[in-house]
Simulated assay, not measured.
Amino acid sequence: MKNITKFLMAFLCLGMIFASCNKDNIDYDELNRQQIEAARKEKARRDSLLRIQAPQLEQYAKTKWGSDAKYSDSTGIWYKVELAPSTETPYAYTGTIGYYGPAANAWSATFNFKGELMNGTVFDKNTDGVPKVYDDIRNAIKVYNTAWVQAFIPTIINIQGQDVRFEGLLPKGLQKGDKISFISPSYYTFDQTEYTAGSEKVTVPKNTPVVYTIDLKAVGAVK
């Protein structure tokens, strides 16, 4: 997995800083060692999960989607995409340079979606005929985790005149009228948490890969 340590360090640093911000006499060398060790352990955990799950994900994608199945080597995500035939101007995803480096800005989105277990059991979806509306996509990501970020954002976002490479699955990012189905390693979805809050009252066990389909109706700036 490319650059995984950098992303893990950024995430872990936040927790460490918030936990320590009210303490005096902080040993920053020790804090740095703790962060590095935590990132090492997290990478080892994810690598172990990926070795187990990668063959399952590949088999599912190739069986379900056949020759339409595509693979992202940098994320381990398999996906199938149906691009909109429209030629209208695509939404331009944006980003900023923050303390921990480049980051994609949030966006709003309206879509139909479905979440399934690998056996086809639906555990979550929007109400039939009523697309889900997120004025800020971060509210969806809090629930469904970072696989949704990768499904939406472009592979490259121009930030302050510089092309910055992200782990987005599609060159232009998900656009109005596009439909994407994807299955990812479990650490990009519910990871070590059992999910029970779906619309279908189906439990998703922890460390379980799931399949999402997003049919995008609109995308734009945060409202």
Results as ranks from 00 to 15, higher is better:
68 D>T: 10
71 Y>N: 12
72 S>Y: 07
73 D>M: 11
75 T>D: 01
76 G>N: 01
76 G>R: 00
77 I>A: 02
79 Y>E: 04
81 V>T: 11
83 L>W: 02
84 A>F: 06
85 P>T: 07
87 T>K: 13
88 E>P: 00
88 E>T: 13
88 E>V: 10
88 E>D: 13
91 Y>H: 10
92 A>K: 11
92 A>F: 00
95 G>D: 06
96 T>V: 15
99 Y>G: 00
100 Y>I: 08
101 G>W: 09
103 A>G: 06
103 A>C: 08
106 A>F: 05
106 A>P: 04
109 A>E: 06
112 N>P: 03
114 K>P: 01
115 G>M: 13
115 G>N: 12
116 E>I: 04
117 L>G: 08
119 N>K: 06
121 T>S: 08
121 T>C: 03
122 V>C: 13
122 V>E: 12
124 D>E: 09
124 D>L: 05
125 K>N: 12
126 N>L: 06
129 G>M: 10
134 Y>H: 08
135 D>V: 12
136 D>R: 12
137 I>V: 15
139 N>L: 15
141 I>C: 12
141 I>S: 11
142 K>V: 15
143 V>D: 14
144 Y>N: 07
145 N>I: 00
145 N>D: 13
146 T>Q: 10
146 T>K: 11
147 A>H: 06
147 A>I: 02
147 A>P: 00
149 V>I: 15
150 Q>R: 00
151 A>T: 10
152 F>T: 07
152 F>M: 14
153 I>S: 03
155 T>V: 12
158 N>S: 13
162 Q>V: 15
166 F>R: 06
166 F>C: 07
166 F>V: 09
172 K>T: 06
173 G>T: 07
173 G>C: 06
174 L>C: 03
174 L>P: 03
176 K>Q: 13
178 D>S: 07
179 K>T: 14
179 K>D: 02
180 I>Y: 05
181 S>I: 05
185 P>F: 05
186 S>R: 04
187 Y>D: 12
187 Y>V: 00
188 Y>E: 05
189 T>M: 07
190 F>Q: 05
191 D>L: 03
193 T>N: 09
196 T>F: 00
197 A>R: 10
199 S>N: 07
200 E>K: 13
200 E>H: 08
201 K>H: 13
201 K>A: 14
202 V>N: 09
208 T>W: 08
209 P>L: 02
